[in-house]
Design a protein around this nucleic acid. Structure first.
Lengths: 340, 340
DNA sequence: ATGAAAGCGCTAACAT
DNA sequence: ATGTTAGCGCTTTCAT
């Protein structure tokens, strides 16, 4: 690398333009009264020099930082980038900028990332889920800025929460399964300890089936990355082990889609003899040989609302109590029979 | 929100622990010689108060910022999160933290994002692609920090470049098409202007076919998001319009997979009568009814190497000249016949 | 409409 | 091993 030139400062622009540093600062931030002539002189000088303001100094002096810390478990799982897209969509109209960190579903890494982010004094925090270490909760509570926990509302938020109830999503899926006359359910889930949302969906499903004539007869969890191959593999193994299943509930659309492809190849009458359902509502999957039944996780909408909350443009209604529960649509697709 | 408490400073910790601010600073940063007794006193005081250091002040004083700006066109297109995952994997072992911005394939937005990021004086920049505005190039060149342009090497980097040659990937695909005896090729691409990598792959393909007995007989570009549905739709339309095609080249695995599903349903002898190939090598797709031929884009590896470059732990060999060209593997899958 | 002075919270450099 | 001093580059506040 070329030896690092010492950085250009306001002083350099001020000298080049022949006005005080304060006036340069005003022009560059569009604040206060500056004559047109001065403004142009300053802008020309800044452009000519290639001046880039130092936000670190600015933030220290003004005690204002236009960053929003965003903490998600993973960027490889599409749901989180999609939530982020909703957030960015809203923040784009404000001075706020998201700073993203991922935790790999590890609460200790989450705590470290949070500490790191708070040390930059962001204007807000958006964080996935309601499960955090005690230290993380204390830091967020003490930060003095809006904290929005997204993509889940089943629990007590530090400050605000936006998302769907995964427990309810599982519960309602149970209702659909019962209404459509399935009797013997298998569950394909994940081994990831930190995936509390998947856990809650399954708990909701169990609760919804309790006291009905529908039973959960098998369950298998996989480790590692969700994909079609994993869905095939898990489905094959489960149908081998428990051949009298008539419904498979996957905690993820991608494994569900893999299961669907497997069943179609095996000539299984999907829907009639074996119902299948996933979760998330990935539009990526539109175009499968058959549309998989699923429940929309409203992740993009959650991101949008979180953005409004940190930007201060969200209006709370009384009953909401700093909690926005989104209503997930059940998308029946063509892998479940109709109600009986 | 509770009214914002004025923030805790080193001074508060220093008073609580009964040592100078400087000593507190040393303990908190693990620098210099501090006695065990003092260290523990300070750590206890900091923990008891819930002190979170102010990195803004620290960065201003030390002229050191442990942030790496990462700029990608999109987070919804899986290749970019995957590159990021490789980058994070490497940065996790260093004090550096990525800060991500996305540009929606808009070079002016890229320029604004870059300006914003440079104003935080990051320790490095990782940016997708080699096409930028003149102002962006000037800013990066003048930043005085390592700048790594990733996921493409076809062009002149500002500082360093890591990735595959998309032109070569297209060129080599042409060789495979010729070797396997296909004659009439259709291309399914995208309308996104800013996707220079897709453009280069197609240019490479055209160049590779020039002078052979293989001709490109049709081409269609889609707008909007890549998914299975789009691949089906484009494939149906193209086969309708140009029924004598014997090969379809997709610029993306997802549309390719949609095309594959469509062809299988129509009873087309995929491979024998109609060859198909995509691009990227998404492992997500393992488990399709048939494995799609594709070329690995080495995005994760590019992220890893970019991480080593900004962290200063990458050793350049002379001939590389601050450019690392990765060699993309051709993955034949089962949608192309064998060489003739 | 413009300028001068003070200081944001921390760390480098130099004492002791 | 610990403390003192000066200042990072900007913005706030108050003057003119």
């Amino acid at each position: 690398m070329a030896p690092r030139r010492s950085q250009l400062t306001l002083r350099d622009v001020s000298e080049a333009a022949g006005v005080s540093e304060m006036t340069v600062s005003r022009v560059l931030r569009d604040r206060g009264d500056v004559s047109d002539a001065t403004r142009e002189k300053v802008q020309a000088a800044a452009r000519a020099l290639g001046y880039v303001p130092n936000k670190i100094a600015g933030a220290l002096a003004s005690q204002r930082v236009n960053l929003v810390g965003v903490i998600v478990p993973s960027l490889s799982n599409l749901v989180f980038p999609e939530m982020l897209a909703g957030l960015e969509e809203v923040l784009d109209g404000t001075p706020l900028q998201p700073v993203v960190g991922s935790t790999e579903y590890d609460l200790d890494k989450e705590e470290r990332t949070l500490f790191e982010m708070l040390s930059w004094r962001p204007s807000g925090i958006v964080i996935a889920g309601l499960e955090h270490t005690e230290a993380s909760r204390a830091m967020m509570a003490g930060s003095g800025v809006p904290v929005v926990e997204v993509m889940d509302v089943d629990g007590v938020p530090v400050d605000a929460a936006v998302g769907i109830s995964h427990r309810r999503a599982g519960y309602e899926m149970a209702g659909e399964i019962v209404a459509r006359g399935y009797k013997r359910v298998g569950i394909v889930g994940t081994k990831v300890d930190g995936d509390h949302r998947a856990r809650k969906r399954i708990e909701g499903l169990e609760e919804g089936l309790r006291g009905t004539n529908v039973v959960i007869v098998d369950r298998a969890d996989y480790a590692g990355w969700s994909g079609f191959a994993k869905g095939r593999e898990m489905t094959a193994a489960m149908l081998e082990r428990t051949p009298d299943l008539d419904f498979l509930y996957y905690t993820n659309d991608l494994t569900g889609a893999g299961g669907l492809l497997y069943c179609l190849e095996k000539g299984i009458e999907v829907g009639r003899d074996l119902g299948l359902a996933g979760f998330n509502g990935f539009s990526l999957l539109d175009g499968l040989p058959r549309k998989l039944a699923t429940v929309d996780s409203c992740r993009r909408e959650a991101g949008r609302i979180a953005g409004r909350i940190v930007a201060g443009t969200w209006t709370w209604t009384d009953e909401e109590d700093r909690r926005v529960e989104l209503t997930p649509a059940f998308l029946p697709g063509h892998t479940m029979r109709s109600s009986v």
